[in-house]
């Protein structure tokens, strides 16, 4: 249990997707103009990360990893399909996103109208694929750990985008040098937020 809590906290603060690895920066910069839309986008990211990472974990452990195919027959003990992981992961992500979109549209039109427009954007959000690739690289020992890691990374991303959106709403009233307005100042603020988040780095979990 403690192990899970550690993974969760670690993936939110210490290994924050945005500030430590710059994942999902494109949508982070493009959709952070108002708090309302950024909350929607953040929620969609948590949701999709929480679903795709356990799926890709199963894929990794029962198909792709070296010797993962032994459950079919012992002849496959030497088969290593991990070079296929990019294409398999992205296929899983793209189809799950499509599926989730259709399910939400059918069963919860209200949720769809607030979350729906963000879902297609998410298939090409690097935070999602990055989450799966980090899961593969770090070798979590159970599917529960992988799921917790996925949810934690999603929450970290959510915090980051809501934070920057709130700052951007306020900064509209400030007198920023013309050439720095918009994109430039957003980068610099993100850098400052990143410095703030670096203070979590010393925490050993």
């Amino acid at each position: 249990m403690q192990e899970l809590a550690n993974i969760f906290i670690k993936s939110i603060f210490i290994d924050n997707m945005v500030f430590a690895y710059f994942l999902g920066m494109c949508s982070y910069l493009a959709i952070s103009k108002t708090v309302k839309t950024s909350v929607g986008m953040g929620a969609a990211v948590i949701f999709v990360l929480g679903i795709t990472i356990p799926f890709n974990y199963l894929l990794e452990h029962y198909i792709l990893k070296e010797g993962a195919l032994v459950w079919i027959s012992n002849d496959f003990i030497d088969v290593d399909l991990s070079f296929l992981s990019f294409i398999m992961f992205i296929a899983v992500i793209a189809s799950i996103v499509q599926l989730v979109e259709m399910v939400i549209e059918k069963f919860s039109p209200a949720l769809y109208s607030s979350l729906g427009i963000f879902l297609p954007l998410i298939a090409v959000n690097c935070a999602i694929l990055g989450g799966s690739l980090f899961m593969q690289e770090r070798g979590y020992s159970s599917i529960i750990e992988a799921t917790v890691f996925g949810l934690g990374s999603g929450v970290g991303w959510f915090l980051a985008i809501v934070g920057i959106a709130a700052i951007r709403e306020k900064i509209r009233y400030s007198n920023v040098p013309p050439a720095l307005r918009g994109l430039g100042i957003t980068y610099i603020i993100t850098g400052l937020m990143g410095i703030a988040f670096m203070s979590f780095m010393g925490i050993k979990l």
Binding site: F19, A20, Y21, F22, P177, P178, A179, L180, R181, G182, L183, G184, I185, T186, Y187, I188, T190, G191, L192, M193, G194, I195, M198
Partner: peptide, 25 residues
């Protein structure tokens, strides 16, 4: 990591100061 963001931010600043039609509102 944070200084990468600041470096790109400054780069954008320099580019837009030179090329005024790129300035945002």
């Amino acid at each position: 990591p944070p200084m990468a963001l600041v470096t790109v931010g400054v780069l954008i600043w320099w580019q837009r100061a030179r090329n005024e039609k790129l300035i945002e509102n």
